[in-house]
Write a protein that binds this DNA or RNA. Structure first.
Length: 576
RNA sequence: CGGGUAGUAGCGCAGGGGCUAGCGCACUUGGUUCGGGACCAAGGGGUCGGUGGUUCAAAUCCACUCUGCCCGACCA
């Protein structure tokens, strides 16, 4: 490609709002262009990288025996009503009516559509297992897009869907994805870890997320350096210390202005482990059958030395969503913020008690009376509720498997795999007949990779102060050929030779100064740079440099250039 | 959806009731330069986000609104 014809231009300054390096360079190097919040065009450079990533993904999916399909972005709302997600998903899913006033949705994932395909095709166990995938546009109306391609509203996702007759089959294809994903990220050059995760709106039991560890990430990953236990904080477990004692009778005590655990501990001169703290949320509970919503107050109780993980609380409460409760809502349930506890709360309040509280005795808890707490409250005698693990794991807490200290880090989710089980097949009547003529729900799994997000993470991982330096597997071109000589016939000829040899080359044929060409080349970050200038051209040579390497430029003979470059490409490809 | 912040040339910004709205980069033309973002000269490009108001006069003041970005809520 002649750079003089390339549909993009480089920017000297970072556009306002480019908050992380990778995003800044994607914009400045002319890979992408923003159209609206969370909506981007891919320019030729960006699109070429995306196609490279896509090709790697396709190869690895095909190697699993997956068959590529393409499902529609627009789905009938009725399909989503079958699984209840038409109702349970909030405004993140965009809806509209067609001309005949039918509900339509923009698919934000394709479980419904794919299950529909499954039920049309699968009749017998003889057809199973089946595995399909697609690379398709998703629209999710995220309330807050940010960080360039990291968190967008419109994006391309590789999503695959497995159909099996039994759990064993599901686990096999799940494991196959688990391994294939590592191969995909490795081939792209992105370091990731797999972590146990929450299945969120997808339903199902077992799920993993692939995380690129980076400070720009929005997820928190809890990791044990000793035994390797790793999980998203949303579900991460840890070992808790319990302090059981002989239960005593509760006792009202005056605690003026002690609204926080810290105040309370000072006021009564006790450790935080002797207190119980309450978090008040309002949960939306949705009836999947008729879609009717009902709000209930949810109270989470955790021991004062820990924090509540809202995601765990939501799961334990089986709520569709949670939001912080307003003061009036808390008061209406006979509880007092700052001095609150489930003791004497209104009937219908959902009380979730962390096991740290359930297994401790004689904790100080709010008396639901401003300025007062109770000493010696005990779960089971003073109040009731559902016991669950709702505490948030944190840096330094003890690993659930080996007991050593856990560490917390930030990460970006670049892929996930879910064992869906029969959540969709049962809801949508996707059944097969087994060997005995029995009708059984197909067991499903779904597996996603955000393609654009993957590119964004790669740009975050591979850059320096002058620009991008993507690995050759995903760079838009293999070679950047920079001509500094006047004689365009000579450089045109070299360009043709490189192209003929099957090398992907971006040819800087522009009438620009050397400095501009070098700066742009650094910014775009193509792995191999060939410089043809008077310095070496007179000796029948050119200079070759690998982007980002500290080594001196190599000198290659022009006579055998294509061949030598091919060797160099092969060398770089092997690095991975 | 709450809090903050900004919208003036393609990009980055200045101007904050009064003459023809500026600067740097980018762009065009001519010339000089020619291996790390060159120089000289001459140019082109703007409904100052939108609507309504105040005023003799609005980019500038007021109201509403749209959009971007940041923090939070949210998020497979």
């Amino acid at each position: 490609m002649r750079q003089s014809r390339l549909f993009s231009k480089t920017l000297r300054e970072a556009p306002n709002g480019a908050d992380c390096k990778g995003y800044e360079y994607l914009l400045r190097a002319g890979y992408i262009d923003q159209l609206a919040a969370g909506i981007f065009s891919l320019l030729p450079l960006g699109f070429r990288s995306i196609q490279k990533i896509s090709a790697i993904v396709r190869e690895e999916m095909n190697a699993l025996g997956a068959q590529e399909i393409l499902m529609p972005v627009v789905n009938p709302g009725d399909l989503w009503k079958e699984t209840g997600r038409f109702y349970s998903i909030d405004r993140e899913m965009s809806r509209f009516k067609d001309r005949n006033d039918r509900d339509m949705v923009l698919a934000m994932t394709h479980e419904e559509c794919c299950t529909d395909l499954g039920r049309n095709v699968i009749d017998s166990y003889k057809r199973l297992p089946l595995l399909v995938y697609q690379l398709q546009t998703k629209w999710r109306d995220d309330p807050r897009p940010r960080a360039g391609l990291i968190r967008v509203r419109e994006f391309t996702m590789k999503d695959s869907y497995s159909f099996d007759k039994d759990q064993e089959g599901l686990e096999k294809v799940y494991k196959a994805h688990y391994d294939a994903y590592f191969r995909i990220y490795k081939r792209c050059g992105l370091p990731v870890i797999a972590v146990g995760s929450d299945s969120g709106m997808m339903g199902g039991k077992v799920a993993h997320e692939y995380m690129y560890l980076s400070p720009i990430g929005e997820d928190t990953i809890i990791h044990c350096p000793s035994c390797g236990y790793t999980a998203n904080r949303q579900v991460a477990r840890f070992q808790k210390d319990y302090y059981p004692e002989a239960p005593k009778a509760k006792e009202l005590v005056e605690t003026p202005d002690a609204k926080t655990i810290e105040d309370l501990c000072k006021c009564l001169n006790i450790p935080a482990t002797k207190t119980a703290k309450a978090l008040f949320m309002v949960g939306t509970f949705i009836n999947d059958q008729n879609g009717e919503e009902e709000d209930k107050l949810v109270v989470g109780i955790v021991r004062g030395d820990m924090d509540i993980e809202e995601n765990k609380l939501q799961n334990a409460a089986k709520a569709n969503s949670l939001r912080p409760a307003h003061e009036e809502e808390i008061l209406a349930a006979n509880m007092v913020p700052g001095f609150g506890s489930p003791i004497g709360c209104k009937k219908g309040t959902v009380v979730i008690v962390d096991d740290s509280v359930a297994k401790s005795n004689n904790l100080v808890a709010g008396a639901n009376k401003a300025g007062y707490h109770y000493l010696n409250t005990n779960f089971g005698t003073d109040y009731d509720g559902i016991v669950a693990d709702i505490a948030s794991a944190a840096d330094g807490y003890r690993c659930p498997t080996c007991g050593k200290a856990l560490s917390a880090s930030k990460g970006v989710e670049v892929g996930n795999i879910f064992q869906l089980g029969t959540r969709y097949s049962e809801a949508m009547n996707c059944y097969y007949q087994d060997e005995n003529g029995q009708r059984k729900p197909v067991i499903m799994g779904s597996y996603g990779i955000g393609i654009g997000r993957l590119l964004a993470c790669l740009c975050e991982e591979y850059n320096d102060e002058s620009g991008l330096k993507l690995p050759i597997a995903v760079a838009p071109y293999q070679v950047h050929f920079i001509s500094l000589i006047k004689d365009t016939e000579v450089s045109d000829k070299i360009y043709d030779e490189l192209e003929k040899a099957g090398i992907e080359v971006l040819y800087d044929d522009r009438k620009e100064s050397a400095g501009v060409k070098f700066a742009d080349a650094d910014l775009i970050g193509i792995p191999i740079r060939i410089t043809l200038g008077n310095r070496s051209f007179n000796e029948g040579k050119c200079e070759v440099k690998v982007r980002g390497s500290q080594e001196e430029a190599m000198s290659f003979d022009l006579d055998n250039l294509a061949q030598e470059i091919k060797t160099l490409i092969a060398k770089l490809e092997q690095r991975v």
